[in-house]
Design a protein around this nucleic acid. Structure first.
Lengths: 129, 129
DNA sequence: TGGCATTTACGAAAACTATCGTACATTTGA
DNA sequence: TCAAATGTACGATAGTTTTCGTAAATGCCA
């Protein structure tokens, strides 16, 4: 599989596009500048480069270009997770899971989802015996 | 809290030191070069810079210096996780957890640990009502 | 002891990332 | 219509990261 290596800034932009869907530079920049301090042309340039790298697609049919994430959130998540598990968690996924549950205090609802998910996995496993 | 931002290469080195404990440049480099293609002096330089940044400590009492990670694995894990949850998982820790459990196929033993962990959290929660 | 192997120190280049100024094009509305 | 506002293109620069060559120091052992 092709390994993608978005930078920190690129991930911020991807995150916005994943959440908001297709957006203009202006829209992305407005959100970005709430937490970050950079000029408009900086965001523009970043997104243009991301387009060259094929991290973003764009529609240039109207004057104001519209950008879309060209790599899926799921795939990106998985690749970053795998790398993180390997380098920072010594290869143990469960170690990562427990660390994640520990601090970032999840809501009761979230914990329920995880329990459901676990018992679902359990069922599958029995079936495959 | 002081935010640390190890680079990708730095994380690889930290990972080795966390696992192996105090090590020489040679030891780190030998492991690193199994998966990566870089010269010995590159690894040396990296570790020297990491020492300047206070990511590593070193013992220079013998000719061959011995390096140790100066930041804890736990703290680093937590900071990287939090950032990742925010930017890549839209703020949802459970989303990350499920994605992690999904692919990186955990052993039955690992899943058990997680279940135990969850029911432990449950108990705590009831207590606090 | 003297020379080889290993290691550190250091500088510099290469590669990549982030930032912005400026020029030019397009749209809009007074 | 035409000036202001908005957008894109593009080059330049500064900063950071990664890479490595070379020189000097140190240790080992034949």
């Amino acid at each position: 599989m092709k390994q993608i290596r978005p930078t920190e800034s690129e991930l911020e932009i991807l995150g916005i596009l994943w959440e908001k869907g297709p957006s203009t530079v202006r829209e992305v920049h407005d959100i970005l500048s709430q937490t970050k301090d950079a000029g408009y042309t900086t965001t523009l340039k970043l997104m243009q480069i991301m387009h060259e790298k094929e991290l973003l697609q764009r529609d240039t049919s109207s004057k104001t270009h519209v950008y879309t994430a060209a790599i899926s959130q799921q795939t990106t998540q998985q690749q970053l997770l795998n790398k993180m598990i390997d380098t920072v968690f010594g290869g143990s996924a469960s170690q990562l899971v427990m660390q994640a549950l520990g601090q970032h205090k999840s809501s009761e609802e979230e914990l329920d989802k995880i329990r459901q998910y676990l018992s679902e996995m359990e069922k599958q496993q029995k079936k495959n015996r």
